[in-house]
Simulated scan of single mutants.
Amino acid sequence: MIPNKITFGCLTKKGAAEVRERELPELKADELLVKQEACNICTTDYQQWQGLREHQGYPMAGGHECSGVVIAKGQEVGNAFETGDRVSILYDYCGICDNCKAGEITNCQNIEMFGKNYSDEYYGLFGFANYFIRKAKSFVKMSPDLPPEEAAFVEPLGSVLHNMKKLRIRPGKDTVVVIGAGTMGLLNAEVARAMGGRVIVSEMMDKKIDISKSMGFEVIDAKTENPVQRVMEFTNGQGADIVILAVGATAANNQALEMIKKRDAKISLFAAGYPAPQMTIDPNMIHYKKIELIGTFGSDLDDYNNAARMLNEKRVDVSKLVEEKIPLARIQEAFEKANPGNYRVSVILNAD
Rank of each mutant, 00 (worst) to 15 (best):
N107F: 14
I260G: 00
R168P: 13
I2N: 00
N236Q: 13
G172M: 03
I211E: 14
V69E: 05
E21I: 14
N79Y: 09
G115L: 07
G158I: 01
E203L: 06
I200L: 09
A61H: 10
Y274Q: 08
A265V: 10
M215L: 03
A181R: 13
D210S: 14
L24G: 00
S319Y: 11
E76S: 15
R198V: 14
V316C: 00
K337M: 02
I209R: 08
I260N: 00
K101V: 15
E65Y: 11
A351Y: 09
V178Q: 04
G95H: 09
C10V: 12
S88N: 03
R344I: 10
V231H: 02
D282L: 06
P171N: 09
T250Q: 04
G158Y: 00
E218S: 12
V69W: 06
L293A: 01
N4F: 15
G182R: 05
V231G: 10
V140R: 10
E82M: 04
M279H: 01
V247L: 04
Q36Y: 15
G248L: 00
H287A: 11
H64T: 05
R20H: 15
E37Q: 10
A251C: 12
V318G: 09
G127P: 14
E18V: 07
A17E: 11
G68F: 13
T106E: 04
I96E: 09
K314E: 02
S299D: 09
I281M: 03
A249V: 11
D98F: 02
P3A: 01
A181V: 06
K325F: 05
M259P: 03
G127N: 03
E23S: 12
S268M: 07
Q48Y: 00
R344Q: 14
Y91R: 10
E31V: 03
N254L: 02
F234W: 07
M279F: 03
I6G: 08
R193H: 02
I71H: 12
T44F: 07
D282H: 04
N253W: 00
A16G: 02
G78V: 01
A38N: 12
